[in-house]
Design a protein around this nucleic acid. Sequence first.
DNA 1: CTGAAAGCGCTTACAG
DNA 2: CTGAAAGCGCTTACAG
Lengths: 336, 336
Amino acid sequence: MKKITIRDIANQAEVSISTVSFVINGKGEKMAISPAVIKKVQQVAQKLQYKPSMIASSLRTGKTRSIGLIVEDISNQFFADLARVIEDEARNIDYRVFYCSTSDNNDRSEELVQSLLQANVEGFIITPTKNLEKTITMLLKMQKPVVLIDRHFANQKVSHVVMDNYEGSYAATQFLISKGRRNIAVVNNKSGMIQMKLREKGYADALKEAGIYNNEYSLYLDYNTNEESRIDSIIKFFSENRNIDAVLFLANYLGLAGLQAFRSLKYIIPDDIAVISFDDHDSFKLHTPTISVIAQPIEEIAVKSIQLLMDQMTNLENCKIQKVLQKGKLIIRESV
Amino acid sequence: MKKITIRDIANQAEVSISTVSFVINGKGEKMAISPAVIKKVQQVAQKLQYKPSMIASSLRTGKTRSIGLIVEDISNQFFADLARVIEDEARNIDYRVFYCSTSDNNDRSEELVQSLLQANVEGFIITPTKNLEKTITMLLKMQKPVVLIDRHFANQKVSHVVMDNYEGSYAATQFLISKGRRNIAVVNNKSGMIQMKLREKGYADALKEAGIYNNEYSLYLDYNTNEESRIDSIIKFFSENRNIDAVLFLANYLGLAGLQAFRSLKYIIPDDIAVISFDDHDSFKLHTPTISVIAQPIEEIAVKSIQLLMDQMTNLENCKIQKVLQKGKLIIRESV
DNA sequence: CTGAAAGCGCTTACAG
DNA sequence: CTGAAAGCGCTTACAG
């Protein structure tokens, strides 16, 4: 089964390959090619089942109609959902998506960026690791369209789409206060990424305004550790702070570990402790009791980030840096 | 920032582009290029930060060092985990993976195959939809390496890696029987795919051997429906069959819907009903009580399928069709 | 209205 | 040991 090329069509249709190329690319009209010729070329292409070679066309034009999507972990529900929507959106505008996972490892991230550059992707959507700022700056210098999602760097001028982390956390904490909780803890990781800091600040500010902030109620867990040791740390922390009556988990995997810790501790939710976690997850809907969450607007984030990327791709020079904050949604379930 | 090409290196190193190409591709020795020249070329390449253009090399050689991975839904935990391992394995042998999701839609699947063909992937790993048999046959005729995973077609000669669905289901059902359950139901979907039929057969055979099979205890749900209506159907079925004392869910999303149904029905697990589900999921570990599952050996499936694909890619002619059955793992938790 | 030709960045058979 | 040249399948400026 030989590969059908533009030349085969030209031969069969008895026209030049330029003419075929124009017709195939829908430029027939513009090039004033006669309708009869256009039709003939199309028929021959159809008959031979011609499929243009993306590779040849990429080499010639320098365009690949592909974008790179670098997420933290494609097997995490949040990123998987995000990837799914981005893939669909990209397909609508006839773009291909290359996904990859960083595991929050900075060296890996840099490798992935290099590898995507080499594949000549036309744009990047990235959930950056903590030290990726220089790499991102490099991409910007190379005039590559970039949109960051989920998190970003405070002082870097680059478009990003993130949840309003401060507001989400602030609202959730206020809700806990309104339910009469007074000893409200927070569980964070040690990544120090801006989105995590903002979540923590929202929590702290709400408590400070109410005059009940206590800095001993913050627990920080290593990111690169397994679930078991996270659970152990949480158990230890709560056994040493028996008077805590509510907790805000700043990421879904922290919440999931927390629930297992509370099971070991035989805590009754919400009687012994009220719980709210960031990022919705099947398990939160299904837990007994069901767990309240601050859900990220995944669909909106995905759609908006593709849109910002396209803006940059079509009009890189006079394209403004856009910082989009999407509001999260506080979903109240039985755990408060 | 101009793209550095092989020609720039040739100029700077004062050799021909052929020589550069040989050195870059590690064929310097074989082509008997002098060590001094090799070193010089490497140094210049390093200095200019030369990155070979995959696109040009693909066009020339016809190879893309990429494989296509078509799964049902990348946002489903099972497939996300699978994709993650396959991506890592592929990277080890310097291959790129294009993922895409079919949503179990046959037209979509065919489109995806076409689109991957057009991208010139060198091999396919596919979880086929029900009517994809002809498309797969076409790929085989085109001499494209193909490995099916998770499911396959009974009469088609194509390598595949699947769980031993019959055995998993049979063992789980026997376990329920050994715990004294007698009215054991099964919840399946209507896809009619072979893996689902085998799971059901394992269930039925175990019960028939024990002389307690009852064909009224089988519930079939539409695949293309939302979670709500699945839950409703399950509620209806179990309210009409109050004497059922155990149930086997043949896929994780069926199990998840089932747990929500039982909550509505105020069933106590395992007192009122014992539960085992296919495919492990965070929610099953975290549910109160924890839910027993037949876990797929995801890592093994992923590794084996890449390996079979590579066998085909390197040696297509005399490569045997391999049918690999991986044993599932029955994980007993509190729900039985 | 249509065609001949250059060139994207590589690889590789061939010649010396 | 090394170089000149053809060619992968396209696109597009140019000529007529």
